[in-house]
């Protein structure tokens, strides 16, 4: 199989396992999401994949053109880190040529490619602008271009959508899909669940350094997503709220309720318990969204407010 294989990697700092026995794959031509609450170990995992830090144990392989490499070859990878920035006083074209040059792309090829990409993002007029003259969103686009300009076979995008307006988000989404369609292995980390749900073919959920869920989006929803009933009625319908099939009930207003169904309760099973004269105005039964699943999974970890990725002192060891 072409793409990324991560096998049982571990990273320990001061006897605390930050990443604990993680195994997953990201297929070529597919978008794989890596999700988890802050401090779950995502950035450490990504840095190990990038070869910026080394795992204590475990292996990382990357397969390209039938050849399986130990570790991801640096020339094949593009990286958009969560902590973003570009040399402020450098010009857009210069910096793109420099970063492409580090991937062994000639200055002339880099320029041709950069011109195409800048046009795609509507930045053609800014090729000779300094980074400090660009808006945050523009700089982010330039950095995205920097991560794809050398046509990598594998691209890691850490929070690519943060700070983007909806129009730019759509442009990014389209480009990411196009990259995958060309056969690029895409690893995407984001907290914007709606986008993850929309883009990703498969997901890896991590919390406290451990795997909590892994598989296609549909499978994870099946595994974690109980059904949810959104109800609009004139008055509370006691028979439904206190039904034995219902796990939780949340009243939003005088006329709106959300009921959470218990595990393995199907929509039809619940609907068949509603009496014909119940004064229901609207009823909507759906799976939990990825957002809800994430919150549900992360709840256990929510007491862990320490944001490892923002690295206050003391969590410095996270990075070595």
């Amino acid at each position: 199989m072409a793409g990324l294989e991560v096998a049982a990697i571990r990273k320990t700092y001061s006897s605390k396992a930050v990443v604990d026995d993680i195994t997953f794959q990201a297929e070529a031509g597919k978008i794989t999401g890596i999700l988890g609450p802050n401090g779950a170990g995502k950035t450490t995992t990504i840095r190990m994949i990038m070869g910026i830090t080394a795992p204590d144990s475990g292996k990382i392989w990357f397969t390209s053109n039938g050849k399986r490499y130990a570790g991801v070859p640096r020339s094949l990878v593009g990286y958009l880190p969560e902590e973003r920035g570009l040399y402020k006083e450098a010009r857009v074209m210069e910096i793109l040529q420099f970063l492409a040059g580090l991937k062994d792309i000639s200055a002339a090829d880099a320029k041709t490619s950069a011109i195409d990409w800048l046009a795609k993002f509507g930045l053609s007029d800014y090729a000779n602008s300094k980074i400090e003259q660009l808006s945050k969103g523009m700089a982010q686009k330039v950095q995205f271009i920097a991560s794809v300009i050398h046509q990598p076979e594998f691209i890691v995008l850490d929070e690519p959508f943060s700070g983007l307006d909806p129009v730019s988000q759509d442009v990014f989404k389209a480009e990411i899909r196009a990259l995958a369609a060309r056969g690029t292995t895409v690893l995407l980390s984001s907290h914007q669940m709606n986008i993850v749900e929309e883009l990703c073919d498969s997901l890896f959920l991590i919390d406290k350094g451990k795997e909590v869920a892994y598989g296609s989006v549909a499978r994870i929803k099946e595994q974690y997503g109980n059904y949810r009933v959104q109800l609009v009625a004139d008055k509370a319908i006691e028979s439904l709220i206190s039904s034995t099939l219902v796990e939780s009930c949340h009243q939003h207003s005088d006329s709106r309720w959300t009921l959470g169904l218990k595990d393995r309760v199907s929509p039809s099973e619940f609907l068949s318990t509603i009496s014909k004269d119940a004064s229901i105005k609207e009823i909507n039964v759906s799976r939990l969204s990825l957002h809800d699943i994430f919150v549900k999974i992360a709840k256990g970890g929510s007491s862990n407010e320490r944001n490892m990725e923002n690295r206050q002192m003391g969590s410095y060891e996270e990075l070595a």
Binding site: G51, P81, R84, G85, S147
Partner: peptide, 16 residues
């Protein structure tokens, strides 16, 4: 310092 302040280190270190 500037490399760190401009948050370039990670990008550059993913290449070299």
């Amino acid at each position: 310092l500037q490399e760190r302040r401009d948050r370039m280190a990670e990008v550059v270190l993913s290449s070299i």
